[in-house]
């Protein structure tokens, strides 16, 4: 009987705990569902974030390619890293490109971001083709072409 009471008590406590947890989750879902009105600040944050993601993809692809060219990787490791980087950069840019700048200032920022982002995305696509084809000279050219977009992307991450 005592064991049964203990079990019932434990079940009540577990039920109470689950109820509180459910309430907290529901509250957060409601809060997360509310969206801020579009503003320059949120647009700038997204540009910064995208610049960071594309910049990261360029750096990963650059590094993996250099490892491949110096014979320091195995199997398809470098090819996969470069391919994933090209896809990531392309998807990040596509997401930003679909968003309409909320005001004139945001539009100017977009104009500033378009050049390096497109150059990085197309440069990574060329690099992917070169690495897949095991073409060292094309890979070297593609890497060189990514230097300037990479620098501009680093600057974009610091935009005010």
């Amino acid at each position: 009987m005592a064991g049964w009471r203990r079990t019932r008590g434990l079940q009540k406590r577990v039920g109470w705990f689950a109820g509180v947890l459910g309430g907290v989750v529901a509250l957060v879902v409601v809060i997360a569902g509310t969206t801020d009105p579009p503003s320059y600040d949120s647009y700038r944050d997204q540009v910064r974030q995208t610049a960071k993601q594309v910049s990261s993809a360029v750096a990963a692809a650059d590094w993996a390619t250099r490892l491949e060219l110096s014979g320091r990787t195995a199997f398809a490791l470098s090819r996969v890293v470069v391919s994933e980087a090209a896809t990531d950069a392309s998807e990040s840019w596509d997401t930003l490109a679909k968003r309409r700048p909320p005001n004139e200032r945001a539009m100017e920022l977009r104009q500033r971001a378009v050049g390096p982002m497109r150059a990085a995305v197309s440069g990574l696509a060329e690099l992917r083709t070169a690495v897949r084809g095991r073409n060292a000279s094309d890979a070297g050219r593609a890497l060189a072409a990514l230097v300037e977009p990479a620098r501009q992307l680093r600057e974009l991450q610091r935009v005010a």
């Binding site: 960071k52 993601q53 910049s55 990261s56 750096a59 990963a60 590094w63 993996a64 490892l67 014979g71 320091r72 990787t73 195995a74 199997f75 490791l77 996969v80 890293v81 994933e84 990531d88 680093r154």
Partner: peptide, 26 residues
């Protein structure tokens, strides 16, 4: 230091390749 954010499992193997070359990657 390279500013790379890990998004894929593949990237986690790169430090081993950098340090020990092909053997590290394998």
């Amino acid at each position: 230091p390279r500013g790379i954010q890990v998004e894929h499992l593949s990237q986690v193997a790169l430090p081993a390749a950098e340090a020990l070359g092909r053997v590290g990657a394998v």
